[in-house]
Design a protein around this nucleic acid. Structure first.
Lengths: 338, 338
DNA sequence: CTGTTAGCGCCTTCAT
DNA sequence: ATGAAGGCGCTAACAG
């Protein structure tokens, strides 16, 4: 029961009005007279009334909650997205139900199914299940994909082409001739998208698919050391840092033996040894945009835009010729905005 | 509406029984006959019936959800706790409602109040509000504190005494005579607890309170450089990394000019430059213990244990005399178990 | 503008 | 062992 003793009815009594009047004050304030409205608000405040979500939902209204799914909350990238979505929720008085699929693709839809019916809409980060499945699970509830494009689904994603181009161009400019691009899991849209870009660019070697985590990066380092690759664009920062760690563990040096470019620009990138050159993603914007999109859909918007966010290159020591002092200054280059 | 077309009534029709029978199959299976039970299960499966949480809750049953509050989800420490709590939820078919208070102490209780009534219980990380307030908000719902001890509230926390002792002892053993301990925000239980320990230890300087984030650490570095302190135990890793960054930005070196010990052992600690010596917290265990505790309370347990988890020291380059090669090996020392 | 009347889907006494 | 009835707290048509 918790402290859920105060009901709408109590407030009604306190304010001397009918329950439905109180209900209206909460949902369509403009439809009631100024005096009663104030009285009701006073009563609400006095009794510390908190609406019962369950009842509200059951009665057919909005739930006042959205579901957010992430593959791995301990990945700083997703943590930031989640935080800005949460901020949006707070500002709009919504509750956030979070589910971490723990990278287990099979759990993605089941988690969603469990949440469906308890939320007004979904923000899903890097989903892997088929669009069809998703649409079926969420039914008519608004759905926003983050970092995945799909027909008929609103989405906000990073400019994958720019990520590849900025990274590769930078490495080329630094004089590298044998450049590797690490592919991510094929289940990721971003990975498939990058593959398409890479295919159009001549003279690149690809590795992987390699999981976008630290351990996989370490393992990949071994392969890289056996090759003649001198510059690599990792799938993301965490993986890039793994590559760096793998090199260090083997007594090799970055950037002397290998120039490494990451992707995301998580906090660690700037604090690592050496600081990591990376294609920075606007995480705050990502989350904000995702929330705004969902909010608009919840409000009844019918268009489902596919938003592409630009990325920028942040150059740090991991791609500088020698063991130069780490330049804290980031040389930001605007990516292609579509 | 989503795909929530299938109701308990539909299942009842399909199975040719009364709705309440279906309800019982779901809650007290042992109370109904074998044949009908199977029939009902078949119908449930066939129609892909998913119980409506709202209705279930409104009718007085369990919600099947728990609320988790964290000060900042982008802090890896909390992200890990959240993840293991979520894992527990998945295993037990529960939903997790997450609220990030964004370090805004004022929002802590209001967020909780909004969630109360929508959840069966709470796991709250590093809460700052008064125990009394918390008990009032959650009412009779089970409550578990993480990283805070409070009378009458079940909790799981780190051994703060061991954290201080391990850190200071290590610095002393390394020959440091002027050692600083950075205090965290006084609103944190862990900080107050550490203060008590520090007070009993002679010859320590204290700084702060200093916010446990990167920027605050950078700012603190300036103060540290002006002092004669040669070894510092930061409030946590993120802050410690800030101190390191501050030194580097000022052209100073860690560990040459200052030995730094962090606390938590987040992933970044091992990847930073130099790798950070830190008092490692068993984050996975923290989350697991918190969930288990809550689960037990939900199941009707009445005791409210105060669990203390041991910490270990992980020695890395940030406290090694010179710019020695970073030893990836961590020298783990058991902390005092209480 | 505000009161009245029905349920939303489920669980929980009661009966049977 | 199963059916019947009532209501959880709220919103949504309707009246008035």
């Amino acid at each position: 029961m918790s402290s859920q003793a105060v009901t709408l009815a109590d407030v009604a009594v306190e304010a001397g009005v009918h329950p439905s009047t109180v209900s209206r004050v909460l949902s369509r304030p403009q439809l009631i007279g100024e005096p009663t409205r104030t009285a009701v608000h006073a009563a609400i405040h006095k009794l510390v009334y908190t609406p019962n979500r369950a009842a509200r939902q059951l009665a057919g209204g909005r739930v006042g909650a959205i579901g957010v799914l992430v593959p791995d909350i301990t990945n700083p990238f997703f943590a930031h997205v989640v935080r800005s979505v949460q901020q949006g929720c707070r500002r709009n008085g919504l509750t956030m139900l979070l589910a971490d699929t723990d990278q287990r693709e099979a759990d993605e839809l089941s988690e969603a199914r469990a949440l469906a019916g308890s939320v007004d809409g979904f923000v899903v980060c890097s989903p892997v299940a088929a669009t069809q499945q998703w649409l079926q699970v969420v039914g008519t509830a608004p759905l926003v994909f983050v970092n995945r494009r799909a027909n008929g689904v609103a989405s906000v994603a990073l400019d994958q082409q720019a990520i590849i181009e900025l990274g590769v161009t930078h490495l080329r400019a630094a004089g590298h001739r044998s450049i590797a691009v690490v592919r991510g899991p094929h289940s990721y849209w971003s990975s498939r998208e990058r593959d398409r870009v890479v295919r159009r660019l001549p003279g690149l070697v690809t590795y992987g698919p390699v999981r976008p985590d630290f351990e996989a990066g370490i393992a990949l380092a071994t392969d890289l050391m056996r090759s003649n690759v001198t510059g690599v664009l990792a799938f993301n920062d965490v993986q890039a840092l793994g590559i760096v760690a793998g090199y260090r563990a083997a007594g090799r040096s970055v950037p002397r033996d290998l120039s490494v470019v990451g992707s995301d620009d998580i906090a660690d990138a700037a604090m690592s040894d050496p600081p990591l050159t990376t294609v920075a993603a606007p995480v705050q914007q990502l989350g904000d945009a995702a929330f705004d999109l969902l909010a608009r859909l919840l409000a009844g918007a019918i268009e489902r835009p596919e938003i592409t966010l630009p990325v920028t290159l942040t150059v740090r020591a991991s791609t500088l010729g020698r063991s130069s002092t780490s330049s804290t200054n980031s040389i930001a280059t605007k990516g292609n905005h579509r």
